[in-house]
C-alpha cells in the first residue's frame, strides 16, 4: 500500500505544483479574470454551483453513455456479421477507415434536424456515429488477425467455423474491443459536449459553458470544464477496471499485476 502511494507521489506533486504556479502567475502579473481565472476562483465557482454542475454533468454523461451503447452495439453487430465472410469484411474495411477520417461532428446540426434539437437522442446519435467506426474497425481486426498456427491447430481437430469463431476469434478480439472502447469513452464525452454547442436542452455541460462564457462568468465556465474532464477520466477508468476483470490474461493486465 505504501508502495502504491509512493508510486503516485510524483504525479500528485506535479499536479499541485502546476496549480500553485498557475495561481502565482495570475496574481503576480494581475491577469484579468476573463482571460484566465486563478484555481482559487474556479474552486469557489465549483463549490457555489455544485448542484447545478452535477445536474448538467449527469445529463451530458447520460448522452455520452447512451451514444456509446448505441454506436458500440451497432459496431459489434456489423463487425461480427461481416467477419464471417472474409470478402465482405475486406470490401467494407477501406470504407470504414475512410469514414473514420470524416469529421463526424459536422453532422451535429443534421442530427438535431433528424431526432429533434431538444431530444437527447440527437446528441446520442452524434456520439454513436463518432464511436461506431473505431469500435467496428478494431473488432474486425481482432476477429480476423488471428495467429495462423492457432487456426491450423483448430483445423487439425476438424473444428467447425462456428467453434473457431467462439473459441479463437472472439477471445482474440476482446483486447482489441477494449482498446477501442477506452478510446471511445473519451471520444463520447467530446462528441456529446460539442454536439451540445449546436443547441438543445440548456441543462447540459456544453450549454452551461456557452452561457457562462457569454456572460463573462469565466470561473463558472472553467468549473464546468473541470467537471467535464473529471467525468471523462472517470469514465475511462471504469472501462479500464472492467477490462482488468474481463480479460485478466491479457498482457497489459499482466504487467500491471507484476509491477
Amino acid at each position: 500500500m505504501t508502495r502504491r502511494i509512493r508510486y503516485y507521489v510524483p504525479a500528485i506533486a506535479v499536479f499541485v505544483g502546476v496549480l500553485g504556479l498557475w495561481e502565482l502567475v495570475v496574481r503576480a502579473f494581475g491577469i484579468q479574470q476573463f482571460l484566465l481565472p486563478p484555481p482559487s476562483a474556479i474552486t469557489a465557482a465549483f463549490v457555489e454551483h455544485f448542484d447545478e454542475l452535477m445536474t448538467v454533468g449527469g445529463n451530458t454523461l447520460f448522452e455520452a453513455i447512451g451514444g456509446l451503447v448505441i454506436g458500440g452495439v451497432a459496431a459489434l453487430v456489423v463487425a461480427f456479421a461481416t467477419a464471417r465472410w472474409v470478402t465482405a469484411s475486406r470490401a467494407l474495411l477501406p470504407f470504414a477507415i475512410a469514414a473514420n477520417s470524416v469529421p463526424i461532428i459536422a453532422f451535429a446540426p443534421i442530427m438535431n434536424n433528424w431526432f429533434g434539437i431538444l431530444n437527447p437522442l440527437s446528441k446520442m446519435m452524434v456520439v454513436a456515429v463518432l464511436v461506431f467506426f473505431p469500435i467496428m474497425i478494431n473488432t474486425l481486426r481482432g476477429l480476423t488477425f488471428v495467429d495462423q498456427a492457432s487456426l491450423e491447430l483448430m483445423r487439425s481437430y476438424a473444428a467447425s467455423e462456428l467453434a473457431i469463431f467462439a473459441k479463437v476469434r472472439i477471445p482474440n478480439a476482446l483486447p482489441y474491443i477494449f482498446t477501442a472502447v477506452k478510446v471511445s469513452a473519451t471520444l463520447s464525452l467530446i462528441g456529446a459536449i460539442v454536439a451540445e454547442y449546436f443547441g438543445g436542452s440548456r441543462s447540459v455541460l456544453g450549454q452551461f459553458i456557452i452561457t457562462e462564457a457569454a456572460f463573462f462568468r469565466f470561473a463558472n465556465a472553467w468549473a464546468a470544464i473541470v467537471v467535464a474532464s473529471a467525468v471523462s477520466i472517470a469514465f475511462f477508468l471504469i472501462i479500464v477496471a472492467i477490462e482488468r476483470v474481463a480479460i485478466p490474461w491479457h498482457a497489459s493486465a499482466r504487467i500491471a499485476e507484476s509491477s
Partner: peptide, 27 residues
C-alpha cells in the same frame, strides 16, 4: 491426429487445464 508445432500455440485466455480440454470440447 494430434499436432504439436515448434511454438506451443496455447491460448492465453485458457488455463492449462482449459487448453488441454480444447480438442475434447471441439469433438
Amino acid at each position: 491426429y494430434g499436432m504439436v508445432f515448434q511454438a506451443p500455440v496455447l491460448f492465453d485466455w485458457r488455463t492449462v487445464q482449459g487448453n488441454v480440454e480444447l480438442p475434447l470440447e471441439v469433438s
